[in-house]
Structure formats: C-alpha cells, structure tokens
Write a protein that binds this DNA or RNA. Structure first.
Lengths: 334, 334
DNA sequence: AATTGTATTGTAAGTGCTTACAGGGTTATG
DNA sequence: CATAACCCTGTAAGCACTTACAATACAATT
C-alpha cells in the first residue's frame, strides 16, 4: 500500500498524490477530493521513512530531561509533548537520570536520530560551574534549534524560556522579612543557572532590608526529603537557630516540615516553610506547604510556541521570562 | 555526508560499507577496520530514514501512558525508556492525559509512525466495562507486539506484565482483619483489569474471614486527594464508621490521612490507612503511609525483556506476574 | 485564429540505505 | 592443471516518497 496504489486508483500521477499529501495548493479541488477519497477507501498511510528521506525531517523533536520522576519535570514533559503533538510534531524522550553522567552522550544519540530540534527540560543541563561543559550544546545549536526550559545559555540558536526565579525568591524573602522573620535558612540543590538566580534573589532581599548574608544559613542538599530533614536536625543540634526555611525545591520543603514535626515546632508561628515549584508534594502534607508556582504549563507552551516560530523562520528572543506566583498555603502567614 | 562518501574514501563499494554498518560477518577484518576508521575520520552517522526505508523498521517503540504526572507512571516511563535504550531501541512517548478521550486516536497516530511495538503503561487502557472498546488494540496486535504494563488482554500478540494485585490486596486486608480491624473502607479509582483484581482481593479476604462484603464500605473516587478527603468526610458525617481505609492508589491514601487529621483521629490506633504503589507521596506525609510496593522497576524491565524476546522470535507467556510487597510505615501496626 | 499566460498535472531525478545476485580471487581437491 | 568450493566484494534494483522542471490544457487577450 503506497503512493502508487493511490495514484493508480485515482487515475493521477504520484506527484499529484504527493502534493495532496503535503497540502500543496497547486491541485484542483476536484482532483484533491478524488485523491482524498481514494486514500480513505484504501486506508492509506504515508510511510514516514520515505517521507523523512525526501524532506530530511521527520517532524520529531528530542526532549531530554534529567529525571522524569521529579513531579515538576514530569509535568513539563506532559505539556511539552501535548503541545508538540498539537503542532504536528512527535517527541522522542530521553531521561538521563538524575546523575546526568552521560548527558552529552544521550544528547548526541538524539541528534543522530535526525530530530528537528532539541528541548532540554530541567535546569541541570546547564551547569554554571563548568562553562566549557556546555560547548557541545552550543555547537549543536548551529545545526538545529535548541530550547532550554528553565536554563540559559547565550548562543545563537539557543532559546531559553525561564521563570523569573530571582524575582520569585526576592519576593518570598522580602515578605518573610517584612513579617518579622530574621533568620531565614536557605536550602538549595544545584548550581544551575536557575539555582543561582534563586539564591541571588534571597541574598538581594536580605541586603535590601539591610541584613547581612550569613553563609551559615545557606546550605546545599541533595534533592531528597530524608537528607533535608537530617541536615536540619544536625544544624539545629549544632546550635543554629532559624525561624524560616526557604527551599529551591518542594522536596526539600517536605523534609523541612518533617524536621519541624520531629522537633515539635509550631507552624507557621515558630517556623515558616516555603517550597518551590508548587508541585503535588506541597499539597500532600499537613499542613500544606506554601510554595512558588513556577508556571510549568506556561513555560512548556511558550517553549513549543517559540520553537514553532523558529521553524517558521520568525524572530524569537533568546530568552523569554515569565513571572512566578507565590501560593500561600499553611506553612506561612504572609 | 553519506555512505558514498565513506565508500569513496575507503576505496570500497557502498555495499561493503553497509555490511560493516550492519555487522554482516562477510567482510574481511582488514576491510572492516579501514571502513570503521574512515567513518570515524568523517564523523559519519547513518541516516535513520534511509535505513528505515530499507529495513522498514526504525528500532523505535511507542509508549502510551495515561498520565505522566502520576508519579507511578512517571517511574514506569523512566525505566521503560532506559531499558529500551539499553537494548538499542528508541521510544516515542505519547501521554493521553488522564481523560483518555482519544486513546484510540493516539494509538493509531503512534502506529502510523511505524513503531516496531507498542507499550501501554497504566491499567486504564484496558477497561473491563467495555470489552469492545479494546478491539483496536487486539487488531493492532496482529501486526506488531503490544505490551501491557499492569493490564491484561487475552489475544495473540498481546503480552502483559502485571503485578499480583489480587494477592497484594488480599494480604493487606487479611492482615488488617487479623489485627482486629472490622470495618475496612475500600476506595478505588477505576474499573480496570488491575482495579478489579485489587477489589476482588479485598472481598476474598473478607469472605475468607467469614465477614460479609458490605457495599456501603466500597466507594469509587477520582484519583485526587482532595476528593478522597471530602468523600470520607461526607461518609463519616452520614454515620458510617470504619477503622481502616484501603486504597487503590497512594493519592487516595493521602486524602484519607487528611481526613483523619481533620477529624483528629489517632493513627494507626483509631484508623489504619494503606496506600498502593508505594510512591513518593506515601513518604511525604507525616505519618508516612504504609503502602504496597508494586515493583514498577521490575515490571518495566520484564516488559522490555519480554519484548526483546518477542522480537527475537522467542516464546513469551501471554502474562507475566510478579508479587508485590507490603511496605509497613506509620499508618498501620500489622 | 494566433498568442500569451496561468493553472494544473506528469516525468524523472534525487534521497541514503539494504540486499539479492553475480563475479572475481583464492585455496583445496581430484 | 583443471575444477569445485568458498570467501569476499561490487553491481544494481529496490524501498516510498519529494520536487524541480517540463508539458499540457484551457482561458483570456489581441
């Protein structure tokens, strides 16, 4: 069952069938309808390989994500995939695992599939520490569009969609300070572009309030609620006091809440807790955790829309920024 | 950059290059090495489309899942994808969304991409209520292997990997009854194959203990913790009493826990709660929720391994069953 | 009626790979 | 030394589609 069968039955040439297939306007309505009818009768489906060979594209984009079991990224994947499909594109997914050991290798594997673009979901792909590590991304961007969701790299062909993390954290810290909190502990997971922005927002808010930035209040921690809890327990045991905890990820906030339960701290009075991403996790606990909604659905949709613009030859800014929303729940009273 | 460039530079024919590419043994080591060298120098990557055209396969399998933001399915996708990649296969993902309105349409869309097999992750694809709804899957299975993760359909070409849900729920109910619980509320989300098995396990355990199956203790509920909580509140208000809640999904158990907090019930003394899937959610709450580990990693790996056997022409049972583990945490004392 | 232009259709040359078949070279056998 | 056997390699015909270019048909214009 191929284009020849259709052309024979419809009494036209294969070129005409192909034109119908590709929505070429140079086909009379009469012919087009006849061909479409025949296709329907025959249940014809074009062969994607032959098509890909001719067009040198398979209308497929590669999505890389570090960890699909992170509820935040899982949502991103869902929305990206849905939006791409709505635009007639398939996605081939590649989860590198949270270690990201072979991210470069995976990246090239996807490239070898002749994807039309790459989407890197999750901030961890672009590490701040090691600029040279990102060269392979920059090189690839010379050949095909690379979209970063929640990451940023300044290079031609790379388009970022990011949430204004600096502003979000600045606002959270600002409101906590305004409500009288004086010792805000800050927990974060990674040295990514977005991670550094968040931290800077926290620091800038302190400075704006004329408060010192105290390094002993800033801690890095694995993205694991158990570790976060243990870290806080040991910090508290070592004599550190704090009346609020800001975290770069909801899972850390869940850990902080467990710490609070463990130490029988009343929430939010004795200890305020703020998460980040406003994921399902922040709704599971009791009390529910106030968190920052980073608009992953919007980010995903904008990413795909930008990509479509790039495909269409349109101008797209290298960075699109959207504002986050603080969602007050039960672990703060701001 | 194509096979001709390589053949020219290596001074052999394209057929020889192709043979090297495909691991054909009829190539002398000398020639093979020279060709490999040239490929390396030129940085040659075979064109997947042309390859697909010739072989009529692109070493790609379609994965459909209802809702990638369900942590359970997100894990399944991760493991499936990883395992497929390890076997040299790509996956193209398609999340239908929890409504599953267009599942058939999506299914056919993936088929039109000429995938080599389909994997349906999540029990919701195979509804028990409407047998005729599954015909399109059975028809497709005549052309390519269809793998069901946590679903079951008895038809040639369809291979299921399921967790022994009946046994798992039987054991949970049995242990609850043994520990003196007498009114076990049962909450479930869907009329799927696995959903029905779970419920039957619960019922059979009651019967085995000489207890009646009371319909007023069995309720269907959307997979949403808020709805579960509200349902329990209204049931309690209507005078129903219960000393344990079994759920077909962790999210419902989280809702049950919220209900318990709301009504100040002591846990596990006054009310025991058991979740299902042992997902991250069950670790987020305080107390942590006892749950059934349904071994999604094993299920995923077995699914892919079975698929590889099918590809290789081997014999694979229509159904592979693995046992679940009850994970005791803080909402039970069994 | 001849000419021009336009809309539609067909022809044929790619696109990069696989593989059946044929052929050439080398070695073993009679 | 001729012949068969075998191993390796090359030729060429697909695979199902796209598309530049050529050709045709038909209407409009002079």
């Amino acid at each position: 069952m191929n284009i020849y069968d259709v052309s024979a039955k419809a009494g036209v040439s294969i070129a005409t069938v192909s034109r119908v297939l590709n929505g070429n306007p140079n086909v009379s309505d009469k012919t087009r309808n006849r061909v479409l009818e025949v296709m329907d009768e025959l249940g014809y489906t074009p062969n994607v390989f032959a098509r890909g060979l001719g067009l040198n594209t398979m209308k497929t984009v590669g999505i890389m994500c570090s960890d699909s079991s992170d509820p935040y990224l899982a949502h991103a994947i869902y929305y990206l995939e849905r939006e791409l499909r709505a635009n007639g594109y398939d996605s081939i997914l590649c989860c590198t695992g949270s270690e990201l050991v072979n991210k470069r290798q995976y990246f090239e594997l996807l490239l070898s599939k002749r994807v039309d673009a790459m989407i890197l979901a999750g901030s961890k792909f672009v590490e701040i520490d090691s600029a040279e590590d990102n060269n392979y991304i920059i090189e690839a961007a010379a050949d095909l569009p690379v979209m970063l969701v929640n990451g940023y790299l300044d290079a031609p062909g790379i388009y970022s969609t990011v949430c204004d993390d600096h502003d979000a954290m600045y606002q959270v810290a600002h409101r906590l300070l305004q409500s009288g909190r004086r010792q805000i502990l800050y927990l974060y997971t990674s040295h990514s572009y977005s991670g550094m922005n968040k931290l800077q927002g926290y620091k800038d808010a302190l400075t704006a309030h004329g408060m010192p930035v105290r390094q002993e209040l800033i801690h890095r921690c694995a993205k694991d609620l158990g570790e976060a809890k243990e870290l806080l327990l040991s910090l508290a045991d070592s004599g550190l006091t704090f009346d609020a905890v800001m975290t770069s990820d909801d899972s850390l906030a869940v850990g902080a809440l467990k710490f609070a339960h463990c130490r029988k701290k009343s929430i939010p009075e004795e200890l305020s807790i703020v998460g980040y991403n406003n994921s399902m996790l922040s709704y599971c606990t009791d009390p529910e955790i106030s968190s920052v909604d980073t608009k992953i659905e919007s980010l995903s949709i904008i990413t795909v829309q930008s990509l479509m613009k790039v495909f269409g030859g349109g101008q797209v800014p290298g960075k699109s920024v959207i504002k986050a929303d603080f969602v007050q729940k039960q672990t703060t009273d701001l």
